[in-house]
Amino acid sequence: MAGTGPRGRAERRNAGELESEVLAALWATDRALTPAEVQAEIGGGLAYNTVHTILKRLYDKGLTVRDADGRRGAYRPAKNAAELTAEAMHKALDQGPDPIAALQQFVTGLNPEEERALRDLLGGER
C-alpha cells in the first residue's frame, strides 16, 4: 500500500493529515467502518491504536457518528455540516462563472480523445 516499496519511499503523515485520510475513507464508502476496517483501508503501517484515537477525535469534533443500527464500534461520517457545505457550493456554482468556476480545480474537463487515453491508462476499467 502506501508504505515503503520498490517504487520509492512515502513520507510520514502527521496527525492532522491522518485525520483527513480517515475522514475521507469513511466518506468514500456507504458502509459504517470499524477501526480495523479503516486500518486495512488506508494502510501505510498505521497502528490500530492510532486509527482508534483518530476516530475518537473525529467523533468528539462531531464529524463522525457511531453506527446506530449496525455493528458495535463502527463509524459513519456525520452528514449535517457536509450537506450545508454542499448546498452552499451548489448555490455558488449556479451563480455563474464567477466564484467557484474561476477556481483551481484538482482536474478540468476532457475531450473524447483524452478520455479514451485516460481509460487506457487505467487499464480499460470503468
Binding site: 483527513s20 461520517p77 455540516a81 450545508l84 457545505t85 454542499a86 452552499a88 457550493m89
Partner: peptide
C-alpha cells in the same frame, strides 16, 4: 462561506454532493 459549520481545526471539509469536485 463553504467552511461554515465545520470545526476550525480540521483540514478536510467534505461536501455531501453528487458533483465530483476537489479544491
Amino acid at each position: 462561506l463553504l467552511c461554515e459549520g465545520h470545526p476550525p481545526d480540521t483540514e478536510l471539509i467534505v461536501a455531501a454532493s453528487p458533483i465530483p469536485k476537489a479544491f
